[in-house]
Nucleic acid binder design. Structure first.
Lengths: 149, 149
DNA sequence: TCAAAATAGTTGCAAGTGCAAGAAACTAAA
DNA sequence: TTTAGTTTCTTGCACTTGCAACTATTTTGA
């Protein structure tokens, strides 16, 4: 009689196990960096603000798609940015369901100031990675995402 | 006059950007798999339950360390498992600050039943990855985590 | 021996997220 | 035109998580 031994998997062999930790620690580091430079922004607020500035006038759905956030989350983050006077919303006269979202001058200046800060913390996790390693890494991540999608 | 052009980074070049999506989708898939098998457990509850069973009688701090969750989160998850009668807590007579956590018979049976389910969804993200690619991938993730730690 | 520090666990709060439902506006088809 | 369906955005709710503060117990070291 033969026993089929199921190979048990340890957490340490699961990519996702590491990814959760990486994401958490990275967000923590990024949050601290923004705080220490008096950004007055959360990481998500930064990402959305930056994305708006690169697609000035686009709708909330479009912003949500490009940052991979759902509609309610996008709405709330944009509202927070509006409250801080970093962006403004304007009804699209062509389609009165949509808002066109614009970066204000204050928002533009904040982005300018924060870009070097963000550049700096973004390179922390990939320190010591060669360019080809980074490319390989990204391609593995893309394959994994495809497997899940 | 020379202008130093800052190389702007797109979200698509950031490993963490993909990791967030992967973690989210993976958790979603895992949640569905557990639900469809009437596990009655969240993903985190499963991980903690399994970890307890492999370290029967250990303290909450030890469980928390091995699953990389903080003390309050560990407390809450264990309490949820206690409510479902899958584990039991017992004051350590040697150190009355500690609880020793044990898997119940009901818990053990549930684990047995769920192991194949978990095995199956765990391989989804790494479909098409060779063994050496998986090893490489893990090592890159470990390096990244080290950079952040 | 006794006060201070460290450790285990718990609780409350603020913030974020996912999901479902709903309001308003637009589109398409009968 | 009018009805049904779709899209955009908003709101509410349940749930999770991270953080800080707190209790109880044990350990340390003066």
């Amino acid at each position: 009689m033969q026993e089929t031994k199921i190979q048990e998997q340890r957490l340490e062999q699961l990519p996702v196990f590491y990814m959760e930790q990486i994401v958490r620690q990275y967000r923590y580091m990024a949050t601290q960096a923004l705080k220490s430079h008096q950004a007055g922004l959360s990481v998500d607020q930064w990402v959305v603000l930056k994305q708006i500035s690169e697609n000035n006038g686009s709708s909330q759905v479009e912003i949500g798609n490009s940052t991979v956030k759902d509609a309610p989350t996008t709405t709330r983050i944009i509202d927070q940015l509006v409250n801080k006077h970093l962006v403004s919303k304007q009804l699209d006269p062509q389609d009165r369901r949509r808002y066109m979202v614009f970066v204000t001058e204050k928002g533009r200046q904040l982005i300018e100031r924060l870009i070097p800060v963000v550049q700096e913390y973004r390179q922390v996790p990939v320190q010591g990675f060669s360019a080809s390693e980074q490319k390989l890494f990204i391609s593995l991540l893309q394959r994994m995402l495809k497997n899940l999608g």
